[in-house]
Design a protein around this nucleic acid. Structure first.
Lengths: 366, 366
DNA sequence: ATTCCTCCTGAGACCGGTCTCTTTCAGATT
DNA sequence: AATCTGAAAGAGACCGGTCTCAGGAGGAAT
């Protein structure tokens, strides 16, 4: 072993070159793996590098090459199993393609998202995968697109940006979930989602600034309209951003003179909190309340009853986004593509017929 | 608005300086926020920078300063709620201290971990937080320590490295969990963990190369020894690295002539799979099998029965690790510190008395 | 033997910042 | 008026790599 000198200054190509008795250029060629070098020189440099414990400085390297071998990812919330699974998909594909992943959390806040994007571009990532928190506030993404740096949107498309996107078939999924409940006779169905509430709650689709949520709600409303349900929009509830807020919203809803008979939760974190609250209240599922949750999270299959969910191909969504980004990074040009992945309705035990009411449960015309 | 020139080459300080009619040095002073500059010059440079849409190149900056404003994090598995919560703690503290976080997943594999550490140091992160997958294989960490770059170990201490670490009181927690079960009369208790199995399973503590796991098992064995249980070590089962392997191991155990009456799961992912399997097998919890899981994951409180868990201060562990790293980054020297955070046993419904057996349930001497 | 071509190598510019060193100049001091 | 002081600004080296370009050596072709 070499002596334990507390080395602060790092070994550079120049040091290696000197030790090997060649020029800096030749050493760089060996160490960087480019150009042509004689076997003799190569051996000398390799040996010197090893002896000196040379470690390349990626920073310097990417400063000159312009490429960093890194892709930046900005997700809403790594804690949400949806995103952590998607990130895994991204990471796996990236690794195979030889890219490193820099991950950042926006906390679903536009301000943090902007800061994250700024930091990542400043650090010259080769490309970005972002799930935009707020699709009315996308100047920073437009900047990225304009700068020519590849950008792929994940889970939330923003068509006006004209960049690649990978999402699930949210509108169809929202419609499917609503229809399932309607077919069971439910008429007062809540759509509960984490999108920040506007000044006075939900009034129109435009109030929902998260792409995926808006899609889902549009499907939800469509199902209601087709079934002739008067005011399907009345029970769309954004603002379920924390467990506490989920509880407050649901408690308020249950206190209505005509309480809802079913809830659709827009992600598994919300779904879990609804489930927990129902159980605390002694509310029987699905007898007293039916529940459908987006995202087939692990726990949904072990509760009693297990939860009926919309299964999204989350891992694949991440992987597809990364694959697309890598294509772009490899020079693929051509128009922006929006990949829409199919979801599946997994029927388990949390949906049952609506309890008998004043109005008899009408069946939707087949 | 400016014209939409598709700018590929980025604007540099030199460009700004030229536009502002000052020297590169002066422009750099304004843009970099250092040195002294007249108000007139400052105004000119600021205006020029805005007009040209100047964006600093963080790479170039950190190449000269030697600091990158970034801390690298290598965790075993971001998908595991334990790590995603810890990462959140890290990210929050880092953000407040003005650092960015680069996150990497090792998949609990030493090889990937090494690659990740190498990449991160090559990109000159200012410091590292790592949860070492294998504490017999730490040359790469030793290199980091030797290079003088601050390193904090998370969840898994390696005392021989002589670096800061933040862990839970794993030995105490393991002992506590085992004791709870022993007090309920259990004698055949499984400790199920994800640590990769040696050639022929568990034979001695040294076979467990994950620090936290070894600690927990040592506590587990100690509890057994104190209660005079003959062969507590016989039911220590590493290798539960995937849901499938959890199933296989548990099924094998249940097929024993004298099957275990209780299982301790070393993390919530394992705990969930055990729970699911028990339910599939129609095994009553806690009547037919008692279960204690490490990590107070969300879902553990909503199952039927809810799961008794060891609650670790996961978020705080991440935050503490980040805080310590930031201290070091700010120049704190002084000896390595190992912070041990307390855990709590949260008794819920998945633990019950051992079913009557040939041997009568002995109570541990108070 | 001469020319041509290929292979290898070294010198040095360059990337985009920071930072030291030097010079200039205005205002204060005596 | 002469000197001192300190703020402001410019020139240019530097960080650690990459890469272009020009030149030298050796082998093949003529």
């Amino acid at each position: 072993m070499e002596q334990d000198q507390p080395r602060l200054a790092s070994v550079t190509v120049a040091d290696v070159a000197r030790a090997a008795g060649v020029s800096k250029a030749t050493a760089a060629r060996v160490l960087g793996g480019y150009g042509t070098v004689s076997d003799r020189a190569r051996a000398a440099v390799t040996a010197a590098a090893k002896a000196l414990d040379y470690r390349p400085n990626e920073l310097a390297r990417s400063m000159t090459t312009g490429r960093s071998g890194t892709i930046g990812v900005v997700v809403g919330d790594i804690e949400n199993p949806f995103f952590s699974l998607a990130v895994r998909g991204i990471a796996d594909v990236a690794r195979l393609a030889g890219f490193n992943v820099i991950l950042t959390n926006s906390g679903e806040e536009s301000g943090f998202e902007k800061a994250a994007v700024k930091t990542l571009t400043a650090r010259r990532v080769d490309g970005l995968i972002v799930s935009p928190a707020h699709d009315g506030d996308i100047e920073h993404l437009r900047d990225v697109a304009r700068s020519g740096r590849p950008l792929v949107l994940l889970d939330r498309a923003v068509s006006s940006l004209g960049v690649d996107a990978v999402t699930a078939d949210d509108a169809a999924a929202g419609e499917r979930a609503a229809r399932l409940l309607i077919d069971e006779g439910h008429r007062r169905i809540v759509y509960l989602t984490a999108c920040d509430p506007g000044p006075q709650g939900f009034t129109a689709l435009g109030d929902l600034y998260t792409g995926s949520v808006r899609e889902r709600v549009s499907g939800f409303l469509r199902a209601g309209a087709e079934a002739g349900i008067a005011d399907m929009a009345a029970l769309v509830r954004p603002g379920a951003n924390t467990p506490e807020r989920v509880r407050r919203i649901v408690l308020d809803l249950l206190a209505l003179s005509e309480p809802p008979t079913a809830i659709i939760a827009s992600d598994s974190v919300i779904g879990l909190e609804v489930f927990r609250l129902a159980r605390e209240l002694g509310l029987d599922l699905p007898g007293g309340l039916s529940l459908v949750s987006f995202h087939d999270a692990d726990w949904t299959s072990v509760t009693s009853p297990p939860v009926t969910v919309i299964r999204q191909p989350v891992y694949d969504m991440g992987a597809a986004a990364a694959r697309r980004l890598v294509e772009r990074l490899k020079g693929e040009t051509g128009p922006a593509r929006h990949a829409v992945l199919e979801t599946a309705l997994v029927e388990r035990g949390s949906v049952g017929p609506a309890p008998a009411q004043t109005r008899p449960p009408l069946r939707r015309p087949a």
